[in-house]
């Protein structure tokens, strides 16, 4: 780890100004990902701008029935908040499925959105990786990839996004707010993460130097009936091999509204729009759920050792929607 400067900032404009002045600077939130990457040499910032004391640690209900969540709210506080648990229980479950109690106490919402892939080639500076060193290659394609992407990947990178929180946020149409030297801006979640293409090192649409200040969750009554389920290689404290956020509103046996998003299958939390379209207005039956999953997964491109994820996600869609529809009937 190289030597670096450290500044603790107390106002957003000060933070943005400091970062703008130093291209080798990084914002430090909980540090649960950045400090680890600094230890492995993947990140080598010259200066850290500690944003933990910024006044962005509140969760507020918006007048329209949504929520505004500050960027420095910790994962723990997000998952424990009564409004989150009541209006978006699937989001609380997603956050609780991630990492450990210790890490959730440290990690922040803003940092969670910007966390990097856990691909074992990305985190090993002795190996090539197009995300870390553009143009160096993607050894995962020929190598170890049993937990790599099946959707939206490219020949340049097959890494997955590790967030659980993000999967629920994309299902609930979160909007990311940020601040730059030129003033504030916002990005809908659908536009926040960039397609992989031939630029896997460019991960988000945030302007250079932007500081995430928070996210808003628009009102979504369907989200009150939501869940998150995560499959991983041990029962807890592990990244997903496949996860799903779902919300369902069934009226008279017909799908009135549905939200579905997948984790651990793509370079970003994956909103299953094709499945949602296939389901909306149709019957809430097992056959329809399976057909919707197939509609989404038709675009899957698998490698020799990750093809099981297609089956896994299909089964998770059916199981999740079946569970939600049965509960709705009860």
């Amino acid at each position: 780890m190289r030597e670096f400067g450290y500044e603790r900032v107390h106002d957003v404009s000060g933070a943005v100004a400091l970062l703008g002045a130093d291209p080798d600077a990084r914002y430090l939130g909980g540090g649960t990902n950045l400090v680890d990457l600094m230890k492995t040499g993947v990140e080598r910032p010259a200066r850290l701008i500690d944003v933990r004391d910024l006044p962005l640690d509140q969760i507020e209900a918006t007048p329209d029935g949504g929520l505004r969540i500050g960027a420095t709210v910790t994962n723990s506080d997000l998952a424990a908040h009564p409004d989150v648990r009541s209006r978006y229980p699937g989001l609380a479950q997603a956050v609780l499925a991630g990492a450990s109690g210790q890490l959730r106490n440290m990690a922040t919402v803003g940092g969670n959105l910007l966390q990097r892939t856990r691909c074992g080639y990305f985190t090993d500076t002795a190996k090539p990786c197009n995300k870390r060193v553009p143009g160096s290659g993607c050894p995962a394609i020929e190598g170890e990839h049993h937990n790599h992407a099946i959707l939206g990947a490219s020949e340049h990178c097959v890494a997955t996004h590790p967030s659980d929180m993000g999967v629920a946020l994309t299902a609930f149409d979160a909007v990311v707010h940020y601040e730059t030297a030129d003033g504030p801006g916002e990005l809908p979640f659908a536009e926040f993460y960039l397609p992989v293409g031939d630029t896997p090192h460019l991960e988000t649409a945030l302007p250079p130097g932007a500081l995430i200040t928070g996210i808003t969750l628009p009102p979504a009554p369907v989200a009150a009936h939501s869940r998150y389920r995560k499959v991983r290689e041990r029962a807890s404290y592990a990244f997903a091999i496949g996860s799903i956020a779902g919300a369902l509103d069934v009226r008279d046996g017909v799908v009135h509204e549905v939200r579905l998003a997948f984790g651990a299958v793509a370079s970003r939390p994956w909103r299953a729009h094709a499945a949602e379209r296939a389901l909306t207005g149709g019957p809430a039956t097992g056959e329809a759920f399976a057909a919707a999953a197939d509609a989404e997964l038709a675009a899957a491109e698998t490698l020799p050792h990750n093809g099981y994820k297609v089956t896994l996600m299909r089964n998770l869609v059916v199981a999740m929607l079946t569970e939600l529809s049965e509960e709705a009937v009860r």
Binding site: G120, Y121, K127, P139, E142, G143, E233, R234
Partner: peptide
Amino acid sequence: DRAFGSHVGPDLAGYHVAAHA
């Protein structure tokens, strides 16, 4: 990894031992 001859993810997140759960 066969191409590099070294481990992929040689740490306690990449090498899972049973946890409490």
